[in-house]
């Protein structure tokens, strides 16, 4: 009986020691990690200046309708009647007929402003993020159309599956306070805030 009791205490002692070591290790890991900790939260975003419009954003997102959408820097747009991001290159007439549009879901709404200018607005709920319009705008226009991860839709997965598939490495995690990498005038405010 005595022997048994002694054995138990020895085992208990070992256990306590190991537990202390485990606690220390856990604390150590947390310590190291906390030093690397970003005080701010991060979100996934794509840099439109690196993006090559490979169309994978439309298919790789875990959401059935991708969280990546086309956005428009209206202040960069030429507001042309013939738009490289709106009309197919082989379009016979520069009108709003579906067969002449580059967008597979007709997500770009064209409205007449004044002669000869038109505005092009993305209807986000229709956009699938395929970047066909972005490609057209980059090739023939002012490249005012570009892609962005829309954070009201994005699940902010631990490992973004689009980022993993992105051929140009345009995806990265950025601070949540400045969750967009915008173009045009808004880009300047973003940058100035960033450096401030």
């Amino acid at each position: 009986m005595n022997d048994k009791k002694e054995k138990r205490t020895r085992r208990d002692f070992l256990r306590d020691g190991l537990r202390a070591i485990a606690t220390l290790l856990l604390g150590g890991i947390v310590g190291v990690v906390v030093r690397k900790l970003h005080a701010r939260d991060t979100v996934w975003q794509l840099d439109p200046n690196i993006c090559v419009q490979c169309e994978k954003c439309a298919t790789e997102c875990v959401l059935s309708l991708s969280a990546v959408k086309a956005v428009h820097a209206h202040d960069m747009c030429g507001h042309c009647k013939l738009c490289g991001g709106y009309h197919r290159p082989d379009a016979k007439v520069q009108d709003t007929a579906a067969e002449n549009q580059i967008c597979p879901t007709k997500a770009i709404k064209r409205t007449f402003i004044e002669d000869p200018y038109y505005s092009y607005r993305i209807e986000e709920e229709k956009c699938i993020g395929c970047a066909k319009c972005v490609k057209g705008c980059n090739a023939f226009g002012n490249s005012s159309l570009y892609l962005q991860v829309r954070h009201d839709r994005c699940l902010n997965c631990n490992q973004c599956s689009i980022a993993e598939a992105c051929p140009s490495g345009a995806f990265r995690q950025i601070p949540a306070e400045q969750a967009y990498i915008l173009k045009g005038q808004q880009a300047n405010t973003w940058r100035s805030r960033d450096t401030a």
Binding site: A73, D75, M76, C80, Y117, H151
Partner: peptide, 26 residues
Amino acid sequence: AQDRFPRPEFESAYQRPLTTTPGPAG
């Protein structure tokens, strides 16, 4: 690329909309 077409100055009162930036749930 960004300057292929001049950015027009409108005679009408058209205002260029800004790009919305809906935030993450946060």
